[in-house]
C-alpha cells in the first residue's frame, strides 16, 4: 500500500463514521496518522485507532492547532 493509498483509506474510515477530518502523515518515520478534526471526536478516534493503524500506521493522533 502506498502512502497515498494509506491516507485515502484512513480518510475513508473517518468519513464512514461521519467525522469531518483531514488526515496527513507525520513523523520522521512517516508512521503517524495525524488527524485535523474537532476535539470532540477524540474519543471516537481512540476507538477507531486499531482499524486505522492496521493500514500501516503506528500511531493515530489529533493535531493541536496553535490558533485554537
Amino acid at each position: 500500500m502506498t502512502e497515498a493509498e494509506r491516507l485515502d483509506a484512513a480518510q475513508a474510515i473517518l468519513a464512514r463514521e461521519g467525522i469531518p477530518a483531514l488526515v496527513t502523515i507525520a513523523g520522521h518515520a512517516r508512521d503517524v496518522a495525524a488527524v485535523s478534526a474537532a476535539p470532540e471526536h477524540l474519543a471516537r478516534l481512540a476507538e477507531l485507532a486499531p482499524e486505522v493503524k492496521a493500514l500501516g500506521f503506528r500511531y493515530l493522533a489529533l493535531e493541536l492547532q496553535a490558533g485554537e
Binding site: 495525524a34 488527524v35 500511531y59 493541536l64 492547532q65
Partner: peptide, 18 residues
C-alpha cells in the same frame, strides 16, 4: 500548548488518540 511546544522547535504538535 501547541504554541509553547512549537516555540521549542516542533513544527507540529499532536495528541495521541489512545
Amino acid at each position: 500548548i501547541a504554541r509553547e511546544l512549537s516555540a521549542l522547535g516542533f513544527q507540529r504538535v499532536l495528541l495521541d488518540a489512545e
